[in-house]
Design a protein around this nucleic acid. Structure first.
Length: 314
RNA sequence: GGUGCCAUCGCCAAGUGGUAAGGCAAAGGUCUGCAAAACCUUCAUCCCCAGUUCAAAUCUGGGUGGCACCU
């Protein structure tokens, strides 16, 4: 044993622009660690500004994993992330270092920390498309009714407008004869693979967070966001990458339908809403030790204390 | 100073006597192989005062504020 326990896994989470990345780098330097990003959009290449990937200067020599390694034409998913993250973590441990998970994609963080298994049936793009076409013609209500006849448990908790999830459940049933409601249980392992330490970073004052977001968008523009977005506009990304906030908001400007100012205002607003959603996601995770960037006099010190105390206990 | 028009939630905006549409924004929430996505919920008694009326955001008078034009 190296004294820190095989499965010890600190996770730094929180809304965008809260200062997660900077904190993580400081921790990594202090603890001989490497960073494993937990961000569904930073995985992509060609959008470093929009997704706020840490620059070489910001990384301060600390190794970062799962950032900018994937072509935007590829789709990504929780399942792929878990596989990639597990491999990255193993690599960091091999080097005798401490892996630090950092990122704002709550679903990914949860899935990784809880050790969700995705050994079951994969998605079926063709079937998915067929179902989507049917939903278009027959309506959401009809699709939900159909789901109710094969998987009443899942159907009961879904709203008819939530087409994405209704179709996903149907896809699973028609593709593999598995009910989503039953597959769920199989995902969670009895023995969690890690001993996670959740550290949340945010601002006690919501307005302060929103202000940080606005300023960061301005900084992105200064760093070349417009040029980056124009490239994406001219060569549209596929599936997952196209969902990122940062490029698509500027498209109306390129199309001459709105001013740059209007688009940037929209971009800031979308980012604020995203931060709000992140907050609701993480808030329900009670184990998170929250640190408030606008309250804490020494953020890094506070986080280090949390980590060292946990190690002592073990 | 005069004349005219206007005054409904943070913004836009329906409603011309019968008990306040809608959109945007905001807030709260959901979330298990697209999650920076998708979805759900909540959110005004109508500028103020007086009057007419069974009943007024809707009519009348006065006040206040804004816009336009005139001197």
């Amino acid at each position: 044993m190296d004294g820190r326990g095989k499965g010890f896994l600190p996770l730094v989470v929180g809304p965008t622009a809260s200062g997660k990345s900077a904190l993580a780098v400081a921790l990594a330097r202090e603890l001989n660690g490497e960073i494993v990003s937990c961000d569904s959009m930073q995985v992509y290449r060609g959008m470093p500004v929009a997704t706020a990937q840490p620059t070489p200067a910001e990384r301060q020599g600390v190794s970062h994993h799962l950032i900018g390694f994937l072509d935007p034409s590829e789709t990504y998913s929780v399942a792929r992330f878990c596989g990639d993250a597990l491999a990255a973590i193993a690599g960091v441990r091999t080097r005798g270092r401490l892996p630090l998970i950092v990122g704002g994609t709550g679903l990914y963080a949860d899935a990784l920390a809880d050790g969700l298994r995705f050994a079951g049936p994969r998605g079926d793009p063709d079937l998915r498309r067929t179902l989507a076409d049917r939903a278009e013609r027959e309506g959401n209500e009809a699709m939900l009714r159909e789901l109710a006849s094969v998987d009443p448990v899942t159907a009961a908790r879904l709203h008819p407008h939530d087409r994405k999830r209704v179709l996903r459940a149907l896809e699973l049933w028609y593709g593999s004869g598995v009910r989503l409601s039953e597959a769920e249980r199989a995902f969670k392992p009895d023995q969690p693979p890690f001993d996670p330490l959740w550290i949340g970073v945010t601002f006690a004052d919501r307005a302060a967070l929103y202000d940080r977001i606005d300023r960061r968008v301005d900084a992105m523009v200064a760093a070349g966001l417009t040029e980056e977005a124009r490239a994406a506009f001219e060569r549209p990304d596929a599936a997952t990458a196209a969902q990122a906030i940062g490029h698509k908001e500027l498209f109306p400007y390129f199309e001459g339908r709105a001013s740059l100012e209007e688009c940037l205002a929209r971009l800031k607003q979308q980012t604020r809403r995203y931060a709000k959603r992140q907050l609701t996601w993480f808030r329900r995770r009670e184990e998170i030790h929250w640190l408030y960037a606008d309250r804490e006099e020494d953020l890094v010190g506070a986080a280090l204390t949390l980590i060292r105390e946990r190690r002592k206990v073990r």
